[in-house]
Write a protein that binds this DNA or RNA. Structure first.
Lengths: 108, 108
DNA sequence: ACTACATATGAACATCTGTTCATATGTGAG
DNA sequence: CTCACATATGAACAGATGTTCATATGTAGT
């Protein structure tokens, strides 16, 4: 009970999963953070590199990356003085890429 | 320029599109709102019905639906005294359903 | 050791956001 | 018209959030 009314193909989602999904959406809901995540889709990127490309302060990028890392959306890897961030797994990559594709394709 | 470094298959996204996408993510980033949207996937739902099923006040559901409608994520249709909301188009339905499927399938 | 560079961290601030409450608008029935 | 019901709307408030600034940590080179 508390599932769906079956008027159409309605996916069901437990409340826990809903909150988990919402948390992921929430993190991607900020333009700066979303652009950072999209950057990492192209491969491991250093904090400074991203800051330059996106026109954001390194401090701000670092703050956002901490949240993204805590949510397991990205992972960090130190290489010399710099730290490179990349998408955590194929799952996340797929989800983001799908969204980007949708927005790019559809007219209105 | 200001595109990508081509280290991997990195989708490119104009800043406008990024903001547009972020706005959509942001709206889905709230648990209450996300559950409301998922409800509409099963077909047209009245405000009161959703409020009951989700354990939210009709007022709150209405407020959220206003935002979702403004962002063209859902559309309203009056039928008698009640007003039924449904997913705006196949595009949105597809995107949400994909996300739900991903979260339901993947282990961790 | 010191210096320069890259990233992280904490505090502080203004702004935004979700929720509640009270009230309004709209609809159909009697 | 009046009543009951369904939804919408606006004000108000507490709590969260993004950003900036200053400072700390860590790393490599001289």
């Amino acid at each position: 009970m508390l599932a769906q009314t079956d008027t159409a193909p309605g996916p069901t989602l437990s409340d826990d999963k809903a909150i988990e999904l919402a948390e992921m959406f929430r993190l991607l809901g900020d333009p700066s953070r979303l652009r950072i995540v999209i950057e990492t889709l192209a491969g491991p990127q250093s904090v400074g590199h991203m800051a330059d490309r996106l026109g954001l302060s390194p401090s701000l990028v670092s703050h956002h990356l901490r949240l993204l890392r805590a949510a397991r959306l990205v992972t960090a890897e130190r290489r010399g003085k710099q730290i490179f961030y990349r998408i955590h797994d194929a799952h996340v990559r797929h989800v983001i890429a799908d969204m980007v594709a949708h927005v790019n394709e559809e007219p209105e």
